[in-house]
Design a protein around this nucleic acid. Structure first.
Length: 379
DNA sequence: AATATGCACAACCGCGGTCAC
DNA sequence: TGTGACCGCGGTTGTGCATAT
């Protein structure tokens, strides 16, 4: 469809924002919230178009924005999510609390993309440019599975991103207070309407990615039998690393109200930050995701999945297709290669595990390339 | 010291999706 | 149901700073 530019009015200022303009915008949003962006500039006394104001607010002035260098953990998250979602920056941003989609996009374009390219990895497909590495049968099978998983996760992550957006909207309209982190921030003087746009707690998908990668790739630390054992450790009820397949068959039927009034469920799901910690928020310890199969944790995720699944039939269809593609047998088959380790397995393993050992990275900047260098050496 | 080049990031532009009328 | 307004997203451009020559 498209539409004509909103800022073609004569006299609209463009270009960098001045501190005075920032102050005006902040003051207005503090006072009135950020309702209609189109009407906002006139009311706030700004010679800007609404779009420009919105951009300035969401990308710069918003109180819940973390600025500065991306951590290794954040880098890994971006890379993994980009592999799944592609350039869906807003969806990726929902899993990186306090980072904006614009910031992530810029960081990808200026740092990560180049780094991957340097390493001979296609930043679009996330595969090595020399695909000979993946030519053996088992690896092909694993790659096929990974592709299916990626498709499914992609759909689900997108759904989650939409949930977050919905949650944002709703919390905005109800003027609810945001997360404790926000309320304790230096900008605590911001009123409720401003606080309402603070980022919600991150969804749990990173838990799943980690559990998936961990289950597939991580040998048991107690000297167990490796990947297969790890998967079984996730529990018989969790045959798929993403835990969805068995749910689609065994889960109790979703109540009609759960579908018809799904938005309520979504908000509960998204807002339940307590169970989201296992993801990117938990940089220290990282213990939760390892215990993903824990019966106390599982139902919560299960609920989330069900809610997500009720969100879109497309997602459900994807799950159905996954059931044929990702069977327990295929999982086990895939894990036969764990001892040797396929490229993708080891790659994601490194992505996830090296983050715990900061000595690999961050201190050395570009020169030592951190875990990338480690991975490169392994090649 | 002056200029050229590269880099990082903020901001803009145009389009698609959604919603109200 | 069709239309237009609004919002949000992703791609692109512009600007300022840092480094190299």
């Amino acid at each position: 469809m498209g539409r004509s530019p909103c800022c073609d009015k004569v006299g609209m200022k463009k270009g960098p924002w001045t501190p005075e303009e920032d102050q005006k915008l902040l003051a207005y949003i503090e006072e009135h919230g950020n309702g209609s962006w189109r009407a906002l500039p006139a009311k706030a006394g700004l010679q800007r178009c609404g779009k420009s104001c919105r951009l300035r607010w969401t990308n710069y002035l918003r109180p819940d924005i973390k600025r500065g260098k991306f951590s290794l953990q954040e880098e890994q998250t971006i890379i993994q999510l980009h592999a799944l979602l592609g350039n869906r920056w807003s969806a990726i941003a929902t899993h990186l609390p306090k980072r904006t989609d614009n910031e992530i996009k810029n960081y990808w374009n200026t740092h990560l993309k180049k780094r991957l390219a340097k390493m001979g990895i296609d930043p679009v497909t996330h595969k090595p440019k020399n695909d000979a590495l993946l030519s053996s049968d088992g690896q092909s099978k694993n790659t096929a599975n990974l592709s299916h998983m990626a498709q499914w996760e992609s759909a689900r992550l997108e759904a989650e991103a939409r949930l977050v957006r919905q949650s944002k909207l709703r919390s905005n309209s109800f003027n609810q207070l945001a997360s404790p982190e926000f309320s304790s921030a230096s900008t605590s003087s911001m009123n409720k309407s401003a606080a309402a746009v603070a980022a919600p707690a991150p969804p749990r998908c990173l838990d799943i990615l980690k559990a998936w990668n961990g289950g597939l790739t991580k040998p048991t630390e107690a000297g167990g039998s490796g990947g297969v054992g790890s998967v079984s450790g996730l529990g018989g009820e969790l045959e798929s690393p993403t835990s969805t397949l068995s749910f689609s068959e065994n889960a109790p039927p979703i109540p009609a109200s759960g579908i018809g009034e799904s938005s309520t469920n979504f908000i509960e799901f998204v807002g339940n930050s307590a169970t989201c910690e296992g993801g990117i928020m938990k940089e220290e310890g990282e213990e939760d995701w390892k215990g993903f199969g824990n019966s106390t944790h599982l139902p919560e995720y299960k609920d989330g999945i069900e809610n997500s699944m009720s969100f879109t039939s497309g997602l459900h269809d994807m799950t159905m297709s996954m059931e044929s593609a990702w069977t327990p047998e295929s999982l086990r088959t895939g894990n036969e290669h764990v001892s040797g380790g396929t490229f993708l397995e080891r790659f994601t393993d490194l992505l996830l595990n090296n983050s715990c050992d900061r000595s690999f990275s961050d201190g050395g900047g570009e020169s030592d390339n951190g875990w990338w260098w480690w991975w490169w050496q392994w090649q």
